[in-house]
Simulated assay, not measured.
Amino acid sequence: MHLLYEEIGPGRGIRVYDTNELYGEKGRFRVLQFANEAIQGAIDLNNPGRILFEYPRAIIHLMETNRPLFENVFMIGHGIGTIAARYPQKRVTVAEYDPKVVELSRTYFGYDRENIIVGDGREILDQEPPEAYDYVILDAFTEKGTPRHLITREFFELGRSKLHTDGALFMNLFGKSEHDNHIGAIYTTLGEVFSYRKAFYLPSEGTRDTLNILLAGGGCPLMYQARHMAGFIEFEPEPGYLITDRL
């Protein structure tokens, strides 16, 4: 590993490094990682246009399948800008809380779009006009996980108000496909606001492993083709409690 940047401090840890192996694959990779060892983004230095991780490939499939002519997307969480960089001709507004993440994405990962607003994603989304977006995408993490104010009923109501009638909200999360009270609660809360929902998990070795989870909510039935979901499998989370701003 060749360390390019590192900042470690109270409540904060972030590093950028080059490595010759990523998840068992040999090559030349550049990685953005938080202190809890959660990788926030990576590029193949030999093929920068290649999307390495499964979850953005699955989200892209959902976007292109459910509203092929989409034009307007609002994203909370930037990482290295994988999805936003794929659509240079479309209007993609990105809210990123940490200005250091924006700086590193530009310096080390070549992100060059001028479409990032630094600040709290929910507050920024609240300022957007109603029914302005085809998709709202939540891909925001701290070292403790997805911020709570981005998974409440009130947040989902806000997201729905900014979507076209047949738009959808997609969420990238981490959890388990069975007996996960937190994922069940988010899915239940999503169902309080959106008429149609779907949930997907990415299989991993070991039943106790934390898995990549995608949740989707929309005003219309959500379509997908399993062979294009980058290995994600649909499942039905167990019912859970309602998450609100008050509790």
Rank of each mutant, 00 (worst) to 15 (best):
residue 53 F to C: 01
residue 132 A to H: 10
residue 234 E to A: 14
residue 37 E to C: 00
residue 1 M to V: 03
residue 38 A to S: 14
residue 49 G to P: 05
residue 223 M to N: 14
residue 127 Q to V: 02
residue 78 H to L: 15
residue 165 T to F: 13
residue 101 V to K: 00
residue 55 Y to W: 10
residue 226 A to W: 04
residue 53 F to G: 02
residue 3 L to S: 08
residue 137 I to Q: 03
residue 40 Q to R: 07
residue 34 F to Q: 13
residue 180 D to L: 08
residue 227 R to Y: 08
residue 40 Q to Y: 02
residue 30 R to G: 11
residue 43 I to V: 15
residue 240 G to C: 00
residue 54 E to V: 00
residue 208 R to H: 10
residue 75 M to I: 15
residue 189 T to D: 05
residue 147 P to L: 11
residue 239 P to Y: 01
residue 78 H to W: 11
residue 244 T to D: 01
residue 214 L to P: 09
residue 228 H to Q: 12
residue 195 S to C: 12
residue 185 A to K: 01
residue 189 T to M: 13
residue 88 P to V: 04
residue 230 A to Q: 09
residue 27 G to L: 08
residue 142 T to R: 05
residue 65 T to N: 01
residue 165 T to Y: 12
residue 145 G to C: 11
residue 236 E to Y: 09
residue 145 G to F: 10
residue 97 Y to R: 12
residue 131 E to G: 07
residue 59 I to C: 05
residue 217 G to T: 12
residue 62 L to A: 09
residue 206 G to K: 01
residue 189 T to I: 07
residue 196 Y to Q: 08
residue 69 L to F: 11
residue 52 L to S: 02
residue 57 R to V: 07
residue 127 Q to E: 13
residue 189 T to H: 04
residue 112 D to R: 08
residue 127 Q to K: 15
residue 57 R to Y: 01
residue 111 Y to S: 11
residue 244 T to V: 07
residue 75 M to Y: 03
residue 122 R to W: 07
residue 188 T to D: 01
residue 139 D to L: 09
residue 124 I to T: 11
residue 44 D to Q: 01
residue 43 I to D: 04
residue 227 R to S: 15
residue 225 Q to F: 13
residue 187 Y to R: 00
residue 213 I to K: 01
residue 116 I to R: 03
residue 247 L to N: 15
residue 60 I to S: 06
residue 84 A to Q: 04
residue 177 S to Y: 09
residue 192 E to K: 15
residue 241 Y to L: 14
residue 2 H to Q: 14
residue 175 G to A: 08
residue 48 P to F: 10
residue 36 N to Y: 03
residue 42 A to Y: 02
residue 177 S to E: 15
residue 77 G to R: 07
residue 231 G to S: 08
residue 196 Y to E: 13
residue 9 G to A: 14
residue 243 I to E: 00
residue 243 I to F: 12
residue 107 T to H: 03
residue 83 I to P: 01
residue 85 A to E: 15
residue 128 E to H: 02
residue 144 K to W: 13
residue 34 F to W: 01
residue 76 I to W: 01
residue 124 I to K: 06
residue 125 L to G: 02
residue 197 R to V: 08
residue 207 T to A: 12
residue 172 N to E: 07
residue 7 E to A: 12
residue 64 E to N: 10
residue 190 L to F: 07
residue 113 R to E: 07
residue 79 G to P: 03
